[in-house]
Design a protein around this nucleic acid. Structure first.
Lengths: 196, 196, 196, 196
DNA sequence: AATGAATGAGAATTCATTCAT
DNA sequence: AATGAATGAATTCTCATTCAT
């Protein structure tokens, strides 16, 4: 590994701080100074570790996604049946520590930058690709091939839509409601699952 | 009407210009100068008509929503059956002139500001309330009361999720695919509709 | 004229201020803030009138050259014989108000940027072209065509070398010495001029 | 010698690297980091060997001058007649390895700092003093005492002016042209040299 | 109503320099 | 000797906003 230990630690601290500031301030308010302050460091150090602001938030997005996708992966590892795999994906995406207004808002802020920032767009593509692949690995056992893509896309859109709503912080969409939404959709769209 | 005719015209030009700049530049790039230039006016005039930048984009959001909700209303006026009402709402929300990457991106940019801008939050609340009310007026005739709220929320989340995806501009989500998604959901969730 | 009167005035003030700061501080020390302060204006106004620092100093160079070349032109207008024309060029380039250590230093600072700044390079090219053209218009009457180019180049190099030396501010090269140098060269290089 | 051998080597590497960076980037772009990178070392080491940036470039200037003045000295050692001595000085100053646009530009960048940096001014003074002394040792045998100073100064100014022009990189002043200029001047200014 | 001049706050970024290891 | 972590000052540049005309 090229990076020194301390540099790896600092970089992680900073990208986490960046994401936290994003939660509180949105992208416009997320200045390097605030990120530095949040990490208990000086302004200069941020650009010592990241070439510029974009790179910092790119890594912040990657990091946030990593945590989320590891939550899903961990659950997937326990799952055996297709239904369990679907449940793992959904439960992972709505874990209490993730599905919070401020975190959803941070994601929303990042997504709003995607069309202007090729790097973020790349990450977004990867995120969607992984989601699709995870979903497909379960759906192919439950539905005719032709319908799998469609359902995978609907599930993704539904998750995104619920996260967006949570990010708007207006309705006060609860985690339970969101999960109920997901389950209701699957109950009606997938063939009957005898024992769950 | 208090406002002179010319002032009303100018204000409309400016809020439309604001929304168009938002499409091209995102919120960060949407400066008052660009909005003015886009409207063929001088920088100073923007703040002559709007107290500040926030107010301008608040009106831009209102205007954009107005166009969208009128498209839905027009269709609703033609609809007679509950199924037609649902179709009106969905078709309105995915009209070709609205469901475009750049427009979805502009909305996404506005949504990302909602948690920091009470005025935008208020508009967002109104938008969702109207959507819910429109949907409920159809759903109550098709489903048991207890399920209506849930389905209305799912439809809204699905629409939002599909718009978000379009705004991300990566997948290249076509209008037809989006509509197919919506119809597939309704087909499975609502009771069979004998003749359409 | 597109520019308003006040804008033209301000721009002139600023490019003159820029050149004066250059005299005192060199390019590295010539910050926009100092230029603004020197012109008795706010920092922001500088970039209201000039797109960026480069553009400001580009105009400062142009302005400084304009003054210099007008001094030469004025003298040329009085000159009738080739010898007088040569004298006009030289005297113009060594006028007391120009040939001062700080001004020579400012020019030196600009020249040092020429290889990195295409705009400055362009101006430099124009300056040299004009100098050559002025010199040639006199020399062709005094020397065989083949030698004119060479002598014009030597005169230019000599002027530049003397300015450079003045800019270095070490030797304390006086204006009289510089003029004597020039005359000594011409006396030996040009054919004898019967009456001056 | 106080300095360890390795330290002497490093210092030389660094001042050469400094001069090379100056060639490519000019003074504004010549950061310690680039110098370090150019020398294949870390940023910290530069200020381990030189108290600060000024000192580094002071040594860079000294080093560059040393190479140049040794080239002249070597040629002077072969020279026997006054004319040969003059030729040695001129040929040394226009050796192909020195008289290159980028090197002239580096010198120009250093000269532009002279008025602000007493250390550089001191070096500049030494350089000019040596040039004068070298020239005088030849000229006193060729011209009346009263004219020697003047001609020495003209030769120096001419060399400087030609170097400056080469540094501007616009005209594309060739080495041959520069040498021809020098010779043409001497041919006309010095008494006829019977056999060369 | 309209222009654009002017301001000043604020942000990103660069860099010399200092220190701990 | 050498590295690179860390700091903070300085600078360019952007922009919303205010004002005079």
């Amino acid at each position: 590994m090229k990076l020194t230990k301390i540099s790896a630690i600092r970089r992680k601290e900073l990208r986490q701080a960046a994401f936290q500031v994003l939660q509180q301030e949105g992208m416009a308010g997320a200045t390097l100074e605030k990120v530095a302050a949040h990490a208990g460091a000086s302004k200069g150090i941020v650009l010592h570790y990241f070439r510029n602001k974009q790179e910092l938030f790119e890594h912040a997005m990657r990091e946030a996604n990593l945590v989320l996708s590891e939550a899903v992966s961990a659950r997937l590892r326990q799952a055996t049946t297709p239904y369990e795999r679907l449940e793992a994906i959904i439960d992972g995406n709505f874990e209490a520590r993730f599905f919070q207004p401020s975190i959803c808002h941070a994601w929303l802020s990042l997504c709003a930058e995607v069309p202007r920032e090729p790097q973020l767009a790349r990450i977004q593509t990867v995120i969607h690709a992984r989601m699709r692949s995870n979903l497909m690995s379960a759906l192919v056992h439950l539905l005719p091939r032709a319908e799998c893509e469609e359902v995978a896309l609907t599930i993704t859109a539904l998750i995104d839509g619920l996260w967006l709503r949570a990010g708007l912080q207006s309705g006060g969409l609860s985690r339970d409601t969101a999960l109920a939404q997901m389950r209701d959709y699957l109950d009606h769209r997938l063939p009957f699952q005898p024992t769950v």
